[in-house]
Amino acid sequence: MEGKQKMKLGIRDYCIRCGICEDLYPQLFHVNLDEDVVEVRYDPVPEELEETARSAMKDCAIAAIYMIKE
């Protein structure tokens, strides 16, 4: 749809790097063990993965995944 806002994901700074996001949604997240950070694979999230992103926000163990509002 024209003018539709693109979805962007952020990870809050209390993320505990448990990796539940990559276990459940490897297409969207990667735990970078070298840098000790969790990376979102897409910025913005492609439209076909928006539903997955919403599920990931719900499934995060500590609700650290959030949608960035612009």
Binding site: Y14, C15, I16, D59, C60, A61, I62, A63, A64
Partner: peptide, 13 residues
């Protein structure tokens, strides 16, 4: 409970 229910990360923060 937040997320899947692990509230202690917020306490630490």
């Amino acid at each position: 409970w937040i997320g899947k229910g692990h509230g202690a990360a917020i306490i630490c923060k």
